[in-house]
């Protein structure tokens, strides 16, 4: 992983995070916003594979855990996004993934990400949330992420692809 690529990836995560906490709450439904950081990690996974995406997921998750106004136990989003980056990276194929594959990957990643986060909360005995509400948050999160995919994923994937001129060396 060269320095430029790491810097660009980190910058993308920072922009995603700031948008997620300042802009999207204005459009949120019951406080549920699209998880832009997760979309960036999925974009990295589909272009660069599981290893890069898992590392980026760790960085993005840790930032999400530490940046205000987060107040949960740090490391929970990091764990969720490491899993997302790894799983989404396994989908990557040699050919460019089609729109259907990208949407399915985003939906599955969003479901896995929010679920892993919620499960880690259960293990750490963070305040219990009812199952019905949990399901509502997870499913609405999936809908949001899929809706935002056409806007976020193409530029993110194009960016990561440009930073990787020779794919066979990846």
């Amino acid at each position: 992983m060269n320095a430029v690529r790491a810097l660009v990836a980190a910058a993308a995560v920072c922009v995603a995070l700031v948008l997620q906490v300042t802009f999207f709450p204005h459009l949120a439904w019951d406080g549920i916003v699209p998880n832009v950081c997760l979309l960036v990690v999925v974009g990295a996974a589909l272009t660069r594979g599981p290893e890069f995406a898992a590392v980026l997921g760790f960085v993005a998750g840790l930032t999400l855990d530490l940046a205000p106004p987060a107040d949960h136990v740090a490391g929970r989003w990091a764990l969720a996004l490491v899993v997302v980056g790894y799983v989404a990276g396994r989908v990557r194929r040699d050919s460019q993934p089609g729109a259907g594959t990208v949407l399915a990957t985003v939906a599955a990643s969003s479901f896995i990400g929010t679920s892993v986060f919620a499960l880690s909360g259960l293990v750490l005995r963070e305040p219990a949330i009812g199952f019905g509400e949990l399901l509502e948050v997870v499913l609405l999160g999936v809908v949001w992420d899929v809706l935002l995919t056409p806007l976020v994923l193409p530029p993110v994937m194009a960016m990561f692809r440009r930073l990787e001129p020779d794919r066979s060396l990846a």
Partner: peptide, 15 residues
């Protein structure tokens, strides 16, 4: 209020 935590984090905090 400049930032709101997402519902996906299951905590209600704002910046």
């Amino acid at each position: 209020v400049v930032g709101l935590g997402p519902s996906q984090s299951f905590s209600r905090t704002v910046t």
